[in-house]
């Protein structure tokens, strides 16, 4: 069986090079070539339509950011809050376990979910001005992606400018925005390290983005039980962990590149961190209400996330 894979990230992206390509090769090997993967030259749909494309069998396998289609995915915002793990690997291990316990089948029952994961912590990258205090953020124009960070920055006094990621370099170079919120990896992915002078971090990051790796359900079920078992075995926590770790690998390179450019590192001061937590708590309360409507106990999810994060932290440290 050939699985058609649709991919909308550039081919050299860390998720593809360090996770998905090796993963597909492993599946091919373990099924003795009964299952092969074909990477389509071009994605079959725009990123926001990718979920539907896989669902309808345009492609058999792809990945997507939950935040591309807000409203459709509510539960998966849980991992996007500030402070949810200090590396992509840790967040993703914990997130996948919590997902399996609470979210599975709730909002994606028509897909075969291989894994969910989160990228590494997102920070504030500024063109000219250093940010350490809450007041520094007031009135700055910042490029943010969609999802939770969009609501969060609004409450911090930031004017969020939502632009396609491809325009990142341009709007930074032009000064259309004063800064961007990204994980380190994205700064180099968009060749912007030369444009950034300051970065502001906080423990566990200001946000992270939730991803989904999925297969077409019919396609998956058309495979033989033993091939399905191989895919199942390689999916779940193992795949989530690898994907989260892919960001950590690239972050290391990106940080080195930025250090070479002489980027100054700052830590958010306690007042700013407190304010971020305060606003995040309000958004969490909102999220819990929405989760309740879907029959999910938000408090239990948050508690489980804390516990799983601690567990994952220990596991990662051990190795």
């Amino acid at each position: 069986e050939t699985i058609n894979v649709s991919s909308w990230l550039p081919p050299q992206h860390t998720l593809l090079v360090n996770t998905l390509k090796p993963w597909t090769e492993e599946v091919e090997k373990r099924t003795d070539g009964r299952v092969t993967f074909r990477w389509l030259p071009k994605p079959v749909a725009a990123p926001p339509s990718t979920v539907d494309a896989v669902r309808d069998g345009l492609a058999d396998m792809s990945y997507v950011v939950h935040g591309f289609t807000p409203g459709r995915f509510v539960l998966t915002k849980a991992i996007e809050f500030p402070g949810m793990g200090e590396s992509g690997e840790i967040s993703s291990i914990a997130y996948q376990r919590v997902y399996e316990e609470f979210f599975e089948g709730k909002e994606d029952e028509d897909l075969k979910v291989l894994a969910v994961f989160a990228h590494s912590p997102g920070y504030i990258y500024m063109r000219d001005k250093a940010v350490t205090k809450l007041e520094d953020l007031d009135g700055t124009k910042m490029r943010v992606g969609g999802g939770l960070v969009n609501d969060l920055t609004k409450e911090l006094g930031v004017s969020s400018v939502l632009r396609p990621p491809g325009e990142t370099y341009e709007i930074l170079a032009n000064g259309v925005v004063d800064g961007v919120m990204f994980p380190p990896e994205a700064i180099t992915a968009f060749k912007s390290e030369g444009l950034i002078k300051h970065v502001t971090t906080m423990p566990g990051g200001f946000y992270r983005v939730s991803f989904l790796i999925m297969m077409n359900k019919d396609k998956f079920e058309s495979l033989s039980p033993e091939d399905q078992a191989v895919i199942e075995e390689l999916s779940g926590v193992a795949l989530a962990r690898s994907a989260g770790h892919a960001w950590d690998i690239q972050d290391a390179k990106a940080n080195a590149a930025m250090d070479k450019e002489g980027i100054q590192r700052h830590e958010a001061d306690p007042a700013l961190v407190a304010k971020v937590q305060e606003e995040a708590d309000k958004l969490k309360a909102q999220w819990k209400e929405e989760a309740a409507k879907l029959g999910v106990d938000g408090d239990a999810v948050m508690k489980a996330l804390d516990a799983e994060l601690a567990k994952a932290r220990a596991e990662v440290k051990q190795q």
Binding site: D52, G67, T69, P70, G71, R72, G146, N150, S160, L162
Partner: peptide, 19 residues
């Protein structure tokens, strides 16, 4: 068909949350 899908999945825009 797409419109029907968007409506039932409650697809919204990212910033303003428009349907």
């Amino acid at each position: 068909v797409k419109a029907d899908r968007l409506a039932s999945a409650n697809d919204l825009t990212a910033t303003l949350g428009l349907e």
